[in-house]
Write a protein that binds this DNA or RNA. Structure first.
Lengths: 345, 345
DNA sequence: CTGTTAGCGCCTTCAC
DNA sequence: GTGAAGGCGCTAACAG
């Protein structure tokens, strides 16, 4: 491994001069030496050792991406959920394009993540997942810059930065669309007993649409589903027997559940959207590849990733930040899983 | 940030002693001091600074995961392909469980990856993608331990380690299954003009099955498809008009293309599998969520990830390695996209 | 403009 | 069983 000292010897200058060149302090170096040193750097294919940098308390150029989860809620591996994996890909791209390195870390508790972050002198963190309480304790526990994605914590929290989605608005729009299309009883489905975070916002949007249309929101407008496929499917078999006629549309808080359930219905001989309409949220690959294609709320995951990285870099560079809580826009993608019969009426 | 020196002061011992405790050299420390020091480590929530470790030439505990790709072949973001993203999730899990850190890096050229690896003193690399030539030059350029995933380079290459799949066998089995079920003209489809790597092996397995059944493999048994959706769809519209009757089964080298095409057929009013049977390769989430469900060749991605990490750690620890090129087993998953009419005959 | 020097946190060798 | 000392590669303060 070639070091600054080696370079210095070869170029016949001092290590400091080499360091100055490497760090762009050109005004401190004569044009001649600059050229000479740069040539040597080129030739030798020099790669600076990050250990030295770290120790000298220069930035590590690492951004940690942390996926925070509760084991209990997980059936699929974290990266099997299309949303997370797409996002990770886009985050990596943005981070790399900004000349940073990405360290990926999944964990169930914040302490572990913070340990990792401080061991590596990470310059900033991007955190997916975690509820309001966890976020608050996270921020208390460290002063490394953090940008959360899709979190819903108290916006007044100091140093709280978040890139999210117009979840409320997305759900409100979709629900209004369904109500205006003539659906009478719409179910909103999420995999929690008491929704929080993103799902809670979507539920609120749903309720808001009900209110705006002077309809009474009933407790059975919300249907809690199980994250475990087998349990969920059993539940839906009951649903088919007992409740199919009471709902004419089901609005799922995520595409995966929507498509999985739509298929279950189709397999049971129920026609979608003729007998029951289904919509999702996310617009992931499944919604496009399902038949009928899923009507859903779309979000731009690339934009989410880029925005989060840009925000984080601004914090790191202590630049001015316009908004510390960005809600990216959503759009309704109308496809085939909603009955046009109702719509035509 | 708390350091070894701090710990030493608090415990009233020397830094060396603390270091000995931290590194498990217990025989060098009296039980009493050991307990005292461990208590202090606990209390203070000490996290060792990796910069110091790195510099002292102790392992970095980083494993780099590199996704090597050719921009030209990419339509989806790398992590949007279900296979890669699942694998990344499993790799992260294995790496973390072994007390390593994962640095994720995508890149188009090996030099960049190697630069990253040596800057960070990465202990080992796991590399996805890359053709035989690239692998050879990669191995020449560095002596960091590397495990490739799904590569097909010369097995005799020094320091070449690979975790792959029984691609040949999987394709052979699937093709035999189709032939024995009575299909006359089977097309094998991959997104390359001249398949290489994984796809080439799958094609060979296909050809082998033809040979074993004394059937003549014709050039038009291989169909090259375009990775760009629009182009591909246009091609298939032609196919429907002209070639639909000449094939009775299509065997795609990947689930994504299989499902996407199956849907295109369905949308065109062609019934699958009655008019044409379709099979894939991978057994990803799409194959399970498509209707009809896709008959495909399944692989265990979790196992792939774990095996790769275990192999890499063995190399790092200079342990004995039984096989330096592992082909994980495959299995045919028979679902509904293959006509049972043929099978019954 | 250039070089000398000290120090970042950790590990290891060698004395005690 | 314990500790002092030096060095890993890099940077920044300071002196020339």
């Amino acid at each position: 491994m070639i070091t600054i000292k080696d370079l210095a010897k070869i170029a016949d200058v001092s290590p400091t001069t080499v360091s100055n060149v490497l760090n762009g302090r050109f005004q401190k170096v004569s044009d001649e030496t600059l050229a000479k040193v740069q040539a040597v750097i080129e030739e030798t294919n020099y790669v600076s050792n990050m250990g030295g940098r770290l120790l000298a308390n220069h930035g590590s150029r690492i951004i940690g991406v942390i996926i925070h989860y509760n084991r209990s809620r997980l059936e699929l591996s974290i990266a099997q959920t299309p949303f997370h994996s797409e996002l990770i890909g886009f985050l990596e791209e943005s981070i790399r394009n900004n000349n940073y390195y990405m360290m990926l870390h999944t964990s169930m508790n914040y302490e572990e993540s913070i340990r990792m972050a401080s061991a590596w002198n990470v310059e900033g963190l991007i955190v997916l997942g975690g509820n309001a309480n966890e976020i608050e304790s996270f921020l208390k526990a460290t002063d490394i810059p953090v940008v959360f994605i899709d979190s819903y914590a108290d916006p007044q929290l100091p140093n709280y930065y978040n890139v999210g989605l117009a979840d409320f608005e997305g759900a409100r729009l979709m629900t209004s669309y369904l109500i205006e299309a003539g659906f009478n009883k719409i179910g909103f489905l999420a995999d929690m007993v008491i929704p929080d975070g993103v799902d809670a916002e979507r539920l609120k949007g749903f309720q808001q649409a009900y209110r705006e249309h002077q309809l009474a929101y009933q407790p059975d407008n919300f249907i809690s589903i199980d994250y475990r496929k087998a349990v969920r499917h059993q539940m839906f078999e009951q649903f088919i027997k007992k409740d199919l006629n009471t709902y004419d549309a089901l609005f799922f808080a995520s595409d995966y559940y929507a498509v999985d359930t739509m298929n279950l219905f189709l397999d049971a001989g129920i026609s979608v959207p003729e007998q029951i309409s289904i919509t999702g949220f996310d617009n992931n690959i499944l919604s496009e590849q399902s038949r009928p294609r899923l009507t859903t709320v779309s979000q731009n995951i690339l934009e989410k990733g880029q925005t989060a990285v840009e925000m984080l870099l601004k914090i790191i560079r202590a630049e001015k930040i316009e908004a510390n809580n960005i809600a990216l826009p959503v759009e309704i993608v109308k496809r085939q899983s909603v009955s046009s019969r109702k719509i035509d009426v």
